[in-house]
Nucleic acid binder design. Structure first.
Lengths: 211, 211
DNA sequence: ATACATTTGTGAAGACTTTCACAAGCGGCG
DNA sequence: CGCCGCTTGTGAAAGTCTTCACAAATGTAT
């Protein structure tokens, strides 16, 4: 409990959360590591080991209580609160994200949108008005932003990131296909579709299989 | 050379490719593992080890010839050809992808679009006409599709995947937030933004840092 | 009460990845 | 030509992650 948690474990926790929501909908009360493993392509031992890093939530002979484990997992992942997000870049990717139902329903609240296109500034998406990029620092400070979503071209991504970091941001979700440099106190997660496609091409080209 | 290549290695190869394109633009002729490592957050030893799985492309004392390594990497990743892709789901995500310049420029050629919305069927995106979802099998076979991009709601993702697999597809890029089951001969890569966000929340909540 | 069928939590073993460290190869220079 | 500075390629070591296997805990049935 409380060592460094590996990235793979964190990803699996997300999967478990998703799977548990499914089991809850199906109306069960408990679930075993075996059942959790079967959705989500992993093994029962892995599920137990992952969870054991954070405490021991199960009952031997029975499994895990779905409602309790859901609550615990949400707390562990930090999704039992609202995250205040600024979206930088109101292009296609920004728009897709903004409209994505899971985004808001999972507590990511897009409280500001910035874009450099004069045509877009002042336009409203829902109740949120698009503001010019120079507002970044003000927005981050005054609206108490937790996360920045970078949906801007690669050429300006680093600059926007630098300014967000200086304004005190802790985390960045980066859609620009470029490796952003930030101080080690700031976290960047990349969403890079081309990389995923290249992984597909690679494995298919080699005639490999399996996940 | 020619063992099983780890996922992390494949991802790094994509990074190297991107980095090399940068170096090429800057006009250099050769690059050292050290320089490659510095863009892309890895180490020189890791770069050399990754590349060594596929042969030995460098010259001691000199480094790697940029043009040669580019060509080799493209061949390794299988991006030295055109991939024929069908986009299933012409919603926001599908549209963002379709318009994404890197997508086409890197050889992913979206030769068909399917959507179940009667309003959309018949509409043209560029020169490509949106077709109804029942055309999937025909399209896969007749247009010799290599990859399917699943940009549909979670509720129908599995069904579409099943049909694509039966029609002989080898790889799926899945945007639906659901774990898709396919035979082990078919490859699925997931793009799951909520998972990335949860990784951010997790690390920020724990007060951790670094990548 | 006791036996039994389950299922967890977890050390230890095994598998896989990354880092280290250095011999071997390369080009340039005197 | 031989020395020198540099950089690769690679075994071996260190580190990390996953799987195994089993004691301990739980509820149920008798």
């Amino acid at each position: 409990m409380s060592r460094r948690i590996s990235d793979s474990t964190v990803r699996r926790l997300s999967h478990y959360l998703r799977a548990l929501e499914g089991f809850e909908e199906e109306g069960g009360a408990t679930v075993s590591s075996e059942e959790l493993a079967s959705r989500g392509y992993t093994t029962a031992a892995q599920v137990r080991k992952d969870l054991s890093h954070f405490g021991s939530f199960g009952k031997r002979g029975l499994g895990y209580r779905i409602d309790e484990l859901l609550e615990r997992l949400r707390a562990i992942l930090g999704v039992d609160r609202v995250w205040r997000v600024v979206l930088v870049g109101a292009g296609r990717i920004g728009s897709a994200l903004f409209e994505y139902p899971d985004f808001r329903s999972r507590g990511y609240n897009c409280v500001a949108i910035l874009d450099s296109d004069p045509e877009k500034i002042g336009v409203r998406w829902g109740t949120t008005e698009i503001r010019p990029p120079e507002d970044l620092e003000t927005v981050v400070t005054e609206l108490e932003i937790d996360l920045v979503i970078l949906a801007v071209p690669a050429s300006v991504a680093q600059e926007v990131a630098d300014r967000a970091v200086r304004a005190g941001i802790r985390g960045i979700l980066n859609f620009a296909p470029v490796q952003i440099k930030v101080p080690s106190s700031v976290l960047v997660e990349d969403v890079n579709v081309v990389m995923e496609l290249e992984a597909l091409s690679f494995h298919i080209t080699r005639g490999e299989a399996g996940v």
